[in-house]
Simulated scan of single mutants.
Amino acid sequence: MFDTKIALIVRDDLQMWQRLNVVAFLATGIVTIAPEIIGEPYVDSKGQTYGAMSGQPMLIFEANLTSLQRVHRKSLERELSLIPYVEAMFSTGHDADNRNIFLLENADNLNLVGIGIRGQKNSVDKAIKGLSLHK
């Protein structure tokens, strides 16, 4: 049905509120790089209009830090679209601070708590090989 695949991977040692927070931020990042995935607004039987959502599924996986870093490397090698979220971002209060703190990270050893990827199905499948869906 879709030529592309979206995978959101969240670190398995986070508290539940952190996992949900990371997934929400990653999903918004995916939409910014692929706005074409957004469908039409929803309308109920009374004619009330609601916001639109992604028309493409986003699969959510869990992984430890080592696996997240592996997915990150493989995604870069395959030139997939990436949305990273590092642990230090939990300590900031807004987007500008997030970008500044991300810039300070060691690019070869990101302390990832989550990553969103989008690309051709087979490339995404190779990048996430061995991961389990979030439970």
Rank of each mutant, 00 (worst) to 15 (best):
M1A: 12
F2D: 12
F2I: 06
D3G: 08
K5A: 15
L8K: 07
I9C: 05
V10F: 00
V10Q: 00
D12L: 00
D13P: 03
L14C: 05
L14P: 10
Q15Y: 15
M16F: 08
M16C: 00
M16K: 14
M16T: 14
W17P: 06
W17Q: 06
W17C: 00
Q18Y: 04
Q18G: 12
N21G: 08
N21A: 04
V23R: 03
V23S: 08
V23H: 05
A24I: 12
A24L: 06
A24N: 11
A27P: 06
G29P: 06
G29Y: 02
G29W: 02
I30W: 00
T32L: 07
T32G: 09
I33G: 10
A34T: 11
A34E: 13
P35T: 11
E36A: 11
E36N: 15
I37D: 02
I38M: 15
E40K: 14
E40Y: 05
Y42R: 10
Y42W: 03
Y42K: 13
V43Q: 12
D44A: 03
D44V: 04
K46H: 09
K46I: 01
G47Y: 03
Q48E: 13
Q48S: 07
Y50H: 15
Y50S: 15
Y50V: 12
G51Y: 12
A52N: 13
A52G: 14
M53Q: 12
M53W: 08
P57N: 07
M58H: 13
L59H: 07
I60K: 05
I60P: 01
I60W: 08
F61Q: 08
A63R: 02
T66Q: 13
S67T: 02
Q69F: 10
Q69D: 11
R70V: 03
H72T: 02
R73H: 11
K74V: 01
S75Q: 02
S75N: 03
S75D: 04
S75C: 10
L76W: 03
E77G: 01
R78F: 12
E79G: 08
L80Q: 12
S81L: 13
L82H: 02
I83Q: 09
P84A: 02
V86Q: 04
E87H: 09
E87D: 11
A88D: 05
F90M: 08
F90T: 04
S91H: 08
S91G: 11
T92L: 07
T92S: 10
G93W: 12
G93C: 06
D95C: 06
A96T: 14
A96D: 13
N98W: 00
I101T: 13
F102P: 00
L103M: 08
L104V: 05
E105F: 06
N109F: 03
N109M: 04
L110C: 05
N111Q: 13
V113H: 06
G114N: 06
G116S: 11
I117S: 00
I117C: 07
R118Y: 08
R118E: 05
G119S: 09
G119R: 04
K121R: 15
N122D: 15
S123A: 14
S123H: 09
S123T: 10
S123C: 05
V124P: 05
V124E: 01
D125F: 10
K126S: 14
A127M: 11
A127K: 01
A127Q: 09
K129A: 13
K129M: 12
L131R: 07
L131H: 08
L133N: 00
H134Y: 01
H134M: 08
